[in-house]
Structures are given as structure tokens and as C-alpha cells.
């Protein structure tokens, strides 16, 4: 029994700290605390709606899409086609940015090129199509289109720089890490 408790506490360190902070808030600034609980519950619902299907789809992708297919379309020799595919994949995605990381891990495990992974993350964060439609209705087409047109070269440039900052050896380590995390 005891052996299981310590690793559990260690893994859930962040949750325990955050919950303690929430507890302090509830004790001393009651209305703010209640508001924080409400927002947390709302985000939890959000997460419950998006995250489980993403992980299941990833599991299925892992089992059904052979490594060769991924290497062919997004691997080292995929060229411009690979970048475009990465951006389309990211843009079609649903859910917040943190949903992109597990997807990236599976893509890496399957042999997608590192710069394509960076383009994918960038696209997921800024050019998501469902969000774009929403942005148009809330802030107007001029605002949304301008932002989109600045962002597309931006994510490609950022991806390029990120690709340069990591050495080949570090990339190798990241790919190993992805193997473990994607299970």
C-alpha cells in the first residue's frame, strides 16, 4: 500500500498544490474562491468533451496507420507536401493547444519529420478553422483575416527557428521521449 502512495503523491504534486491554493482562496476570499471553482468545473467539462476522443483517435491511428505511410507523407523526404499536410492537419483540429502535444507525440513515433511537427503545433495554435469562423463572427472579417495572414508565415518562421535551435542529438532524445509518452 505505502509503496504506491509516494509515487502517486509525486505525480499529482501539481494537482495538490493547485488544490491547496484553491482551498486558501475559498477560506479567505470566499467569493473569488467560488468563482474559481465554477471556472475550474467549466474547464473540466471542456476537457472531458475534447480530450478523451482525441486520445482514442490517437490509439486507433497508432494501430491502423503503418509507419511507412506516415514517413512517406510527413517524413524526412516529404518536402513541401509534408509541411502543407502538417498545416492542414493542425488547422482541421478541434480543442485547445494542449490537445496538440499528445497528437504530436504519436506523429513523431510514426516517423514524421521534426520541422513538420513544429508546423503542425503552430497551425493547431493559430489557424484552426472552426475557431477562425468564430473569430470572424465576434471580431469581424477584417480583424480575423489580417491575423490569419500574418500568422501563417509566422508559424512557418517560428517552426524554422525552433528546428534550428535543437541539435540532432536533442531531436533524437525528443523522439525517444515521444515513443514512451505515446505508449
Amino acid at each position: 500500500m505505502m509503496r504506491g502512495v509516494v509515487p502517486f503523491l509525486k505525480r499529482y504534486k501539481l494537482v495538490i498544490i493547485a488544490a491547496a491554493a484553491l482551498g486558501v482562496l475559498l477560506l479567505f476570499w470566499r467569493s473569488l474562491g467560488i468563482k474559481a471553482v465554477g471556472i475550474s468545473l467549466f474547464s473540466f467539462k471542456e476537457m472531458a468533451l475534447v480530450i478523451p476522443p482525441i486520445f482514442i483517435l490517437l490509439g486507433l491511428l497508432d494501430v491502423w496507420v503503418p509507419r511507412e505511410t506516415m514517413v512517406k507523407y510527413m517524413g524526412e523526404r516529404s518536402g513541401v507536401k509534408g509541411v502543407i499536410l502538417a498545416i492542414i492537419l493542425g488547422s482541421a483540429a478541434a480543442g485547445p493547444l494542449y490537445g496538440a502535444f499528445p497528437v504530436a507525440a504519436v506523429l513523431m513515433k510514426k516517423g514524421a519529420k521534426f520541422s513538420n511537427i513544429m508546423a503542425f503545433i503552430g497551425a493547431w495554435s493559430t489557424t484552426k478553422i472552426p475557431m477562425f469562423l468564430f473569430e470572424i463572427s465576434a471580431l469581424g472579417a477584417k480583424f480575423a483575416v489580417t491575423r490569419m495572414l500574418v500568422d501563417i508565415p509566422g508559424i512557418i518562421l517560428i517552426g524554422y527557428i525552433l528546428n534550428k535551435t535543437v541539435s540532432d542529438k536533442e531531436k533524437e532524445q525528443l523522439y525517444e521521449r515521444a515513443q514512451e509518452l505515446a505508449a
Binding site: 499529482y12 501539481l14 493547485a18 488544490a19 491554493a21 474559481a36 471556472i39 468545473l41 474547464s43 494542449y98
Partner: peptide, 15 residues
């Protein structure tokens, strides 16, 4: 664990 911790922290910040 990371997800759960983040959700609570976001609630606190947004409050």
C-alpha cells in the same frame, strides 16, 4: 495529473 493541475490553476487566474 498535468491536465487536472492546469484546470484548477486556470480557474484561480480567471477568477
Amino acid at each position: 495529473p498535468e491536465f487536472l493541475g492546469i484546470i484548477i490553476m486556470v480557474g484561480i487566474v480567471l477568477a
